[in-house]
Design a protein around this nucleic acid. Structure first.
Lengths: 216, 216
DNA sequence: ACAAAAGTGTTGACTTTACACCCATGG
DNA sequence: CCATGGGTGTAAAGTCAACACTTTTGT
């Protein structure tokens, strides 16, 4: 059925995801280079237009797949962007999500039907992006900071588990803070988000560390 | 400009608000009775379809005005409802908000172009609602409960200020809890959301109470 | 002077912070 | 046996929960 009132027509929904990783103490975000108008040849966050037969998560996963080749990325709601003119094509509402993955464990398609490149950018080196994606990314980064303190969002970064000193570095990278080793461990354990796998990981020349995993 | 891909067409956005009040220890929600299809003659939350030339807040305020006569209601984001078939007419995404006002200080239009009635319903006596509005209301109530603990959302209930014992009853009504008077006062003051107006309110036969207001 | 509701302070329990020592490994 | 980084405990400070008495007003 078609909408009668012309004011109801020509509206669409963008689903956008800021996919983060943490590498050597740097928080990075995955950007793709657009092949098509509008904003042809500009860098952009991953995402695109929702189809009218998709719910939000389904459409977002399709867009992630189409533009990066990645499958089953866990995403978390971040915010809504409703500027009337945020797209030059037609009125598009953007619904923004965040995700986080280990960039060394995945391979990203650099060339797809709609993209001509894909790169991880350290967040302080992000260029001018298509649409209002710089804004969206900014707010996504804030969401990331608050989510790692209360949810198991980092699970996707450590699918095989992690040691406490290892994940502490990740927290410190994302939040730009330093924490006391002993108190950090206690606090993280008290959050009841992780459990001891009762296995140990050996490093070169150091005492082996306990391996933990996030609960579901 | 029209979207090319038919999957991009026929999508719309509902802006929906659960407007609450608290009266004699009861949390109530404002419902309107629909005059038109779909869901003709059913009760529903306030809201409707966003126009393509409106941002979310503007569209929401217009809908509130059209269906209740109320102006300038402060609203807070609550959630998104993306079921593909949540509207029988076409694919509609719903963006849900909450608001809270003093029902004794406003007058609600009972008959408008699109509504044939409007009533405050105690939340435990809410009937079957149009669309997925029962779901939306449920989640809105949870948002309300968490927002009163961290934001000044109750400001709109007490535009002229409040005494601590008075607002404590409101907290207790919404959260269904009882609190110690002394600890409640200390906690609320520590949140840094309110300030002492240095005036007092006299009640019949009681010690006068200090008047506080929410900060902006 | 009494009833009704408002205002205030203290103690113990718990949580959070700061901080120092011992342990396991590889070289 | 030494260097590196991992693991743990404790004391002091701060926060939160429980609780009782005093104040102001109208009658």
């Amino acid at each position: 059925m078609e909408a009668a009132n012309p004011l109801y027509k020509n509206q669409g929904i963008h689903v956008i995801v800021s996919i983060f990783t943490v590498e050597k103490g740097k928080t990075k975000v995955l950007l793709i280079k657009r092949k098509n108008e509008p904003f042809k040849n500009m860098w952009a966050l991953v995402g695109g237009s929702l189809y009218n037969n998709e719910n939000l998560d389904f459409g977002l996963q399709r867009e992630i797949m189409e533009k990066t080749g990645l499958k089953n990325i866990e995403t978390y709601f971040s915010g809504i962007f409703d500027d009337i003119n945020r797209s030059p094509v037609m009125r598009m509402l953007a619904i923004s999500y965040i995700g986080i993955i280990d960039n060394e464990k995945v391979s990203i398609l650099k060339d797809t039907f709609k993209t001509s490149n894909a790169e991880w950018f350290p967040i302080e080196l992000v260029p001018d992006l298509a649409y209002d994606h710089n804004n969206i990314l900014n707010s996504a980064l804030n969401s990331l900071k608050s989510k790692i303190l209360t949810t198991n969002i980092l699970k996707s970064l450590f699918p095989n588990g992690f040691t406490i000193p290892e994940i502490q570095k990740t927290y410190e990278s994302i939040l730009n803070e330093k924490y006391d080793r002993r108190n950090f461990r206690r606090k993280l354990l008290n959050l009841d988000l992780i459990y001891d796998t009762k296995t140990e990981i050996k490093f070169e020349g150091n005492k082996p560390a306990k391996l933990y995993k996030f609960k579901d």
